[in-house]
Simulated scan of single mutants.
Amino acid sequence: MASKNPYTISFGKIPTQFISRSSIIDSITDALDSETPDEQAFKLTGIRGTGKTVTLTAIERYFRERDEWIVIGVRPDAEIMTDIVSNLYSAVPALTKFIDANLNLSAFGIGLNLSKKSPATSMDYVLKTLLRELSKNDKRLLITIDEARKTKGIIDFIQEFQILIREEFPINLVVAGLYEDIESIENTDGLTFFLRATKFEMTPLNITYIRSDYQNTLGVSYDDAEKMAFITKGYAFAYQVLGKYVWDSGKKALTKEVIMKFDEVLADKVYKKIWSELAPKDKYFLSFIVKKDKMEASELLELTKQNHSSWSIPRARLKEKGIIDVETRGVVSIKLPRFKEFVDEQIALEGELQNA
């Protein structure tokens, strides 16, 4: 093994060793790169640690390598249209010259103060003017927003974006965010376009790919690599965590110490946050669901002494947060690795607190 650990547990940092979401990346890049794209906006969603940022970064890199594309990443809490214009001014020489010669953007702190021209007062007008200039120069613009959530800036921008694509301007959008955050934006009045935009869920990584990666990168045996891959359940962050601590151990094997660190990191960086956001009834149902790898819904209702109507809302919430899998009709299973151990510990701790 090389001296530097190729795995990372830092969110937002692109690891040296990772498994690409090739099908999602190819679907989006192929669609946007066509001469007349059918869609100009895409959404990436999933729970924390499923590879949204890594996938978004791969899409940005793809387009940054193409001369006809300009890529701008903006924050969800920013004045997005102002940020876009400011980036275009500073990063695109042709537009810098165009703005300095034609537009007085002094009101926004951008460019030269043209005394003979009245300051622009509408950023909508400015953005349209610049997009028209980009189109004349056969350029396209891609806007990316990571950790997207419902903010005034995002709502204002998406409303304007709907107008821009109707008028066939060369602007495109890819956003990434948690399930509940993307859904919150989708459900905002007046954003029907965003609701209909294609959404890609960060589904579990291929177990075979994880096994091969562990075998080749860590030098573990086929059996250990397969066991490790199944422990991760294809959860991208878990794949990185387990790889990191097996690497750090230097033993080319799965040990109890590695599993302890694995559980600790998942709990501290992901699971405690998820648990804190669950309703009491969600936690109650989970305490029974984790008892088996897979459980019939009828058995769950029998164990909990609940009916279908009382289960429907917790079911929807747990599914939305990426905790349970209900794709197989009438069957419930946990999607997160070693979540049973975490839930058991939390219930024991909360029980002790209640009895204290």
Rank of each mutant, 00 (worst) to 15 (best):
S310V: 10
F262Y: 15
K52S: 02
L254A: 06
V71P: 00
V332K: 07
R21E: 01
E201N: 09
I207F: 02
S34M: 13
K283D: 10
T151M: 05
N206W: 08
M202A: 06
V326D: 02
S122M: 09
F262A: 04
V92I: 09
E296W: 15
E160L: 13
V331M: 09
S310W: 13
N113F: 12
L56R: 03
D67C: 07
A236F: 05
N216C: 06
L318M: 07
V85T: 07
S221M: 05
V258I: 13
S298W: 12
L88S: 02
Y7E: 02
L134E: 01
L134M: 10
Y235Q: 01
R338K: 11
E302K: 10
T232R: 04
K152W: 11
P15K: 05
I145N: 01
M123D: 00
P280R: 07
E302C: 08
T151Q: 02
I207M: 01
L130V: 07
L191N: 00
R315T: 14
E320C: 04
I25M: 03
A279M: 13
E226I: 11
A356H: 15
K199I: 06
G49H: 08
G46S: 06
P314H: 14
D181Y: 12
T232V: 04
E65K: 04
Y125D: 13
I207E: 02
F161K: 02
A176M: 06
V54T: 03
R132W: 15
K305V: 04
K4Y: 11
D100L: 08
I347Q: 01
T203P: 01
A91C: 12
K273N: 12
T255C: 13
F108C: 00
L349H: 08
D100H: 03
E180G: 05
S310I: 09
I19G: 03
T208N: 10
A91E: 13
L254T: 10
Y271A: 07
S122C: 07
L95P: 02
W247E: 00
L105K: 00
F11W: 06
V258L: 09
F339V: 05
I289E: 00
R21A: 02
K199A: 06
V241I: 10
D224W: 10
A356R: 13
I323H: 01
L318H: 08
A148L: 14
V343C: 04
W247A: 04
A148M: 11
R329E: 11
N355S: 10
E183P: 01
I289V: 14
S310M: 13
I182N: 00
G250I: 14
E147Y: 12
D268F: 14
N206K: 08
G243F: 15
I210P: 00
K261H: 09
N187T: 13
V71C: 07
L242Q: 05
F230V: 13
